[in-house]
Amino acid sequence: MTAEKTLTIETDWYPGSVPDNASLGANVYIDTTYAFAAFHSEQREGLRIGSNSGAYQRASFVVGPRGSVVIGDYTVVNGAYLVCENKIEIGSHCLIAWGSLITDSWPSRRSTVAERREAILAASRNDRRPFPEVGGRPVRIEDNVWVGFDCLIMPGVTLGRGCVVGSRSVISSDVPPYAVVVGDPQRIVRFLEPTDAPLKADAIRP
């Protein structure tokens, strides 16, 4: 059902509600408030979803107190995890497939043992949420990006417009626009024709 301007979702199996600091556009679909079971954002706007987007199959918004998630229009988040302590931006017309995890907050490989120890100990002071002190590096996914299933999108990454991430890839550095990138470590296998360049995209949109 459409969750616009409602605090709960009819026919929801989970006894939760849509967070007060979530702003949902017209015709947004969220299948269950279980999506927000780990939503702890204390930002004024912890989640913004544009119009005609949907979160299906237990997509989860795992968001820390300082985190905020922005999703554009006509984007499909199908059973993916967004783990956010800082900022995750997803553009319009994106397809995020099941089992994929997008995070801005895994510790850098340059982090020290002391930093990681402090982070894990802080979890017991903070509702048992892991990595509350890890700062996070924002993730940005531009328009019309397709992320296949079971991918990992790591902190600080920007996925360029129109790019495609193949299933089960692990993406830890930026992907240029219209690239098709696969594997772990990631490698670019081809570039697509930019047939959806912004002016052409406006012609396709309703």
């Binding site: 459409t2 015709n27 947004v28 679909y29 005609n52 987007s53 949907g54 006509y74 984007t75 499909v76 319009s92 017309h93 994106c94 397809l95 019309n144 397709w146 129109g162 495609v164 219209y178 098709v180 697509l192 024709e193 930019p194 047939t195 959806d196 052409k200 995209a201 396709i204 949109r205 309703p206």
Partner: peptide, 18 residues
């Protein structure tokens, strides 16, 4: 989903709720 960016963009519109 289609690989071609324009076709993929159109696909997201056909997949919107309702």
């Amino acid at each position: 989903h289609p690989l071609d960016p324009a076709a993929r963009l159109a696909d997201t519109i056909a997949l919107a709720p309702g």
